[in-house]
Design a protein around this nucleic acid. Structure first.
Lengths: 115, 115
DNA sequence: GCATTCGTCAACCATTTGGTTGAATATGGA
DNA sequence: TCCATATTCAACCAAATGGTTGACGAATGC
């Protein structure tokens, strides 16, 4: 019943989850390391990762006792394509992206704002 | 507390609201006309329009007793820019967009699937 | 003036969401 | 073997979401 776009956009609507995606942009991470900068419990982060995983935005692979999280940007493509029909957007503006990135980093990671 | 991206993505996460945006892509519409193809109450559609309006995705202007709804694609730009950082997307693929558009029209407008 | 149409408001309801805690289940290392 | 580490599960909770209905105010038309 629920469209792929539903789950993609719903996953993106939470600032914690966007911050996680931003962190994974730099490198793959273990669940515990993903959780470290946030002020909430590990279980809460585990749930967020489950939502991102079910939305296809990340993949998780268990090696030994640690589960590695990896960004899967393909799922964003469908949503991005959907959006672009509404604005005749010009090609990616990297400056604007970096401003938003900075805003995101300063917003949902209160313990590590300088990352 | 809540980021503009929060409200934008949350607004986009609902298939009814995406269908409304798709309808408004063709032309401005009155609230009653927006509601007509859906199976839910006018009050529910009014709430959806309020959410889209608060997210900046549409604007509403009252002329006489009818309130006109207009697409405001600028609000999508911020979200789009944010997303594009994750995928190195190639420029807009119009074919893919039209497929998604068709899928959207077939999904949340059961009474008017051929629109 | 009066009924009608347009749209919102208020109250209510069921479900989902985002968080908590504590127990449970691996796996790894001494 | 025993303990610590990594992660999830289960139960619970408060708040938000998406819908309903009925009453309401504001503009229109006869």
């Amino acid at each position: 019943m629920s469209d792929a776009l539903d789950t993609t956009f719903a996953a993106l609507a939470d600032p914690t989850r966007r911050a996680i995606l931003t962190m994974l942009l730099e490198d793959d991470m273990a669940v515990t390391d993903v959780a470290e900068p946030f002020e909430m419990s590990l279980a809460a982060i585990s749930k967020h990762l489950g939502i991102l995983s079910r939305a296809g935005l990340i993949s998780q692979e268990k090696r030994g006792r640690v589960k590695w999280c990896k960004l899967e940007p393909d799922a964003l493509r469908a949503a991005s394509v959907w959006m672009q029909g509404f604005g005749q957007f010009e090609p990616v503006n990297l400056d604007a992206f970096e401003r938003f990135l900075a805003a995101e980093l300063g917003e949902a990671q209160p313990e590590d704002p300088a990352a």
